[in-house]
Design a protein around this nucleic acid. Structure first.
Length: 479
RNA sequence: GGCCUCAUCGUCUAACGGUUAGGACACCAGGUUCUCAUCCUGGCAAUUGGAGUUCGAUUCUCCAUGAGGUCACCA
């Protein structure tokens, strides 16, 4: 396989959401798979839309997900700079070539005049084409007017790595703006120059650019450039709508997912599988497996909905597979505040019990708080229990007293606790649903917890017996 | 309105003319001595509609419908 150079070229106008990440991921996968390079480039030609901090945010997001780029704004490379606002001289040179060849001209109209043309087209229920108003004797371009491309409309057929063979008629080709009156190039012009100069082999981008491709092809011809291969990926849709995923649809910053305790590998796996699969029934892919098996022609042509529940399942699957040391490291920032004073050893024991029920890191506090602090007694856990609510207070006390006397003799190893709990089951004649539930509730005051013997063993004798006593006291007060 | 693209279970998808239309998530039921979860077993559930082509269409063609994109001195 020939090495393929790909790029991710976001504009620093906001945070990076899953749609953007997916484009970056696919480009990264192709580069890694082929032994090529993955390039990051900032397309910051619209100063008005720039958002403070967005550049660093993009870099942080890619880093956090492990989408390491080989060349980019902050690390340089053979074709630096990788920031369009620092490449204006490059665009000037290519623009001059077009002017000299008679393929670019100054736009003499005011924006109000162009708007009027546009309005007329709308009234006539037609697509707006500037070239219908192309001036016969345009003024010499002095940089104060927009510079427009003099297109040569014709039909095009081309191949898209994802969408397949595409074609359009000449009616979609227009004289678009190359350089704005503020001196900055448009995306339409700048990306073509940059991709050519940076020797990008394959462009992967969202479907919002699909309609512009014929114009690009026309410009490539005027520039005497061979177009790179192109791949168009459909948008990721919101969870309940059909709209393109946006912040108000619940699209979150990928860093938010990381902050909530989603594992980068799981996030990568999930986003890759959103619209792509290798035609097998495999669902979980390691990073290397993704690199090995990814193929653009297996990317879905229709948009996919973002299903957070599936992400949670996948993340849980990843967390369960982590080795004890790795899950411990992963969870470091998610412990409840009450765990602050606890030893590493104790926290490791707790984690070994809750690892299999953790879907993402931010769930850790609610799952583990009772291991670190005595929760307030919650009478509803008993009064609302379908078995326990049938028992009298005296019966509950009797059961707890026998549990107390047996457990106080225990060394609190899991084996001994299990043996004693089984014995209690026999002598009390109660079902596990009654006896174990009661002891579990008394010692955790939590709606859910890991297995009883395991939980007691981690809690230890002091905490367990104290909580048993507290439950007894509460039941006594009721009498 | 013009142009382009898309269309399989609720969701993500497999089946590149022949399958009882497969898998996963979610959901439901049962099992794993208690809860929650894991794990196991089972269940529910789809080819947008209509014409063609063909011995045979999820698959090819056309039309309809629906959805998305685009028609910026934004990317």
């Amino acid at each position: 396989m020939q090495p393929i150079r790909t790029r991710f070229a976001p504009s620093p106008t906001g945070f990076l959401h899953v749609g953007g990440i997916r484009t970056a991921l696919f480009a990264w996968l192709v580069a890694r798979q082929s032994g090529g390079q993955f390039v990051l480039r900032f397309e910051d030609t619209d100063q008005k839309r720039e958002v403070a901090g967005a550049r660093q945010h993009l870099i942080d997001s890619l880093r956090a997900l492990g989408l390491v780029y080989d060349e980019g704004p902050d690390i340089g490379g053979a074709y630096a700079p990788y920031v369009q606002s620092q490449r204006l001289d490059h665009y000037r040179i290519w623009a001059q070539r077009l002017i000299d060849a008679g393929r670019a001209y100054a736009d003499p109209y005011s924006s109000a005049e162009v708007d009027a043309f546009r309005q007329q087209a709308r009234t006539d229920k037609q697509a707006f084409l500037y070239r219908h108003h192309r001036p016969e004797q345009p003024p010499v371009w002095d940089g104060s007017q927009p510079l427009r491309f003099r297109s040569e409309p014709q039909p095009y057929k081309w191949h898209d790595e994802v969408m397949g063979d595409l074609s359009t008629g000449a009616e979609v080709i227009d004289d678009f703006v190359l350089i704005k009156s503020d001196g900055f190039p448009t995306y339409n012009f700048a990306h073509i120059v940059d991709d050519a100069e940076m020797h990008i082999d394959l462009i992967i981008r969202g479907q919002e650019f699909l309609a512009s491709v014929p114009n690009y092809l026309n410009l490539y011809e005027a520039l005497e450039l061979t177009p790179p291969r192109m791949a168009t990926v459909p948008h990721i849709l919101g969870p309940d709508g059909n709209k393109k995923l946006s912040k108000r649809d619940g699209a979150k910053d990928v860093l938010d997912y990381l902050r909530d305790g989603f594992h980068p590998d799981a996030l990568i796996n999930f986003i890759a599988s959103l619209g792509w699969n290798d035609a097998t029934e495999q669902e979980i892919f390691s990073r290397q497996q993704l690199i090995d098996s990814f193929a653009l022609d297996h990317v879905q042509r229709s948009g996919a909905r973002f299903d957070e529940r599936r992400l949670e399942w996948m993340n849980g699957s990843y967390l369960r597979s982590l080795a004890p040391g790795d899950i411990y490291t992963f969870c470091q920032d998610f412990w409840p505040v009450e765990a602050l004073e606890s030893s590493d050893d104790y926290k490791r024991q707790v984690l070994s019990l809750v690892q299999e029920r953790l879907k993402f890191g931010a769930e850790l506090p609610e799952l583990t708080r009772f291991f670190f602090v005595d929760l307030p007694l919650n009478p509803e856990l008993i009064s609302g229990h379908k078995q326990l609510k049938k028992l009298s207070t005296d019966e509950l006390r009797t059961l707890l007293l026998s549990a107390q006397s047996s457990l106080s003799q225990s060394d609190f190893s899991v084996d001994d606790l299990s043996a004693r709990l089984n014995h209690l089951l026999e002598i009390s004649g109660q079902k596990p649903a009654v006896l174990f539930s009661l002891i579990r509730i008394a010692t955790t005051q939590a709606a859910a917890s890991p297995g009883l013997a395991d939980t007691l063993a981690v809690l230890g004798p002091e905490r367990s017996l104290r909580r048993l006593q507290a439950q007894l006291d509460a039941l006594t007060d009721l009498n």
